[in-house]
Design a protein around this nucleic acid. Structure first.
Lengths: 144, 144
DNA sequence: CATTATTCCTATTGACTCGATAGGGTATTG
DNA sequence: CAATACCCTATCGAGTCAATAGGAATAATG
């Protein structure tokens, strides 16, 4: 299960992706429109800022905008930041590999083989979905 | 990420699947061979018993054996019991569907569409892997 | 240049889950 | 009937999740 934080992050980013590029939107506005607790959203956006997913503009008339083209921000990118690795086990994570504490022989572990296959397919799917395509989809559906 | 509990459960079940069918193995032996905390394993096996994954035999010479053919126990079956739904969101879970609290219109949600695709592919993979096939694989690798 | 509007930083909270442990109850068998 | 196993309930500390609070730093504007 993904966290509530991830859901909020995706919703906020979709809202930003739907603006004219570069135009900042204020935290308070995002929070209101997407019905996200303001202070919580604040923390999420700071987290998304570090890896450059969003860019911030301080002071009056400030706010947040996307840090790069919407088509270059995948769902996988976002979930990895807000929820950690997509993998079901550290031993099959590409971004954050870690050996299982008590694993006898990783190269023979059948559990690992199954979880690796699962990781690869989810990663492939979530990396192929990006904010731009999602916004287009929303426009077509008239939900935006 | 799957829980430590799930990892223990799978390891214990693989051990049971490697025995001659119907022959019970005692908790203490499983715990020792697989290096699992005894009391914790006890709780896991009780949980696996309810849905019939394993069968228990009380009293002297008792122990646990598989509750049905090894080929009829998938990794997905086990993970669903020990870790809950495979889905990344309640709204895309087949076994435990639940609407997201603050979702405006589920039929239009692009987040849901992505998570649904992810769920389907993981479910397909984890349902196709069963204990019998895994044991065969281990035997071939000489790890058993 | 002061005021105002905004993001940024640190800390804290309560509820919950995870992994593990403890102790005794209950059934079966030799 | 006693030893051997599974069964049940309760508890623990550590960690995470979602949310809240208060104020510091920064930038635009009149």
């Amino acid at each position: 299960m993904i966290s509530q934080k991830s859901r909020y992050a995706l919703r906020a980013l979709l809202l930003l992706a739907a603006q004219e590029p570069g135009k900042p939107v204020q935290i308070a506005d995002i929070a209101k429109q997407e019905n996200i607790p303001r202070k919580f959203l604040e923390a999420i956006l700071v987290e998304l800022k570090k890896p450059g997913i969003v860019r911030s503009h301080r002071g009056r008339q400030g706010g947040y905008s996307l840090g790069r083209a919407a088509k270059d921000i995948s769902f996988a990118d976002v979930l990895r930041i807000t929820d950690g690795p997509l993998a079901l086990s550290p031993c099959v994570s590409v971004m954050a590999y870690r050996k299982c504490e008590d694993c006898f022989d990783e190269s023979v572990c059948v559990i690992r083989k199954a979880l690796l296959a699962a990781r690869d397919s989810t990663a492939q799917i979530l990396e192929s979905r990006n904010l731009a395509a999602a916004v287009t989809q929303l426009r077509r559906a008239g939900a935006i």
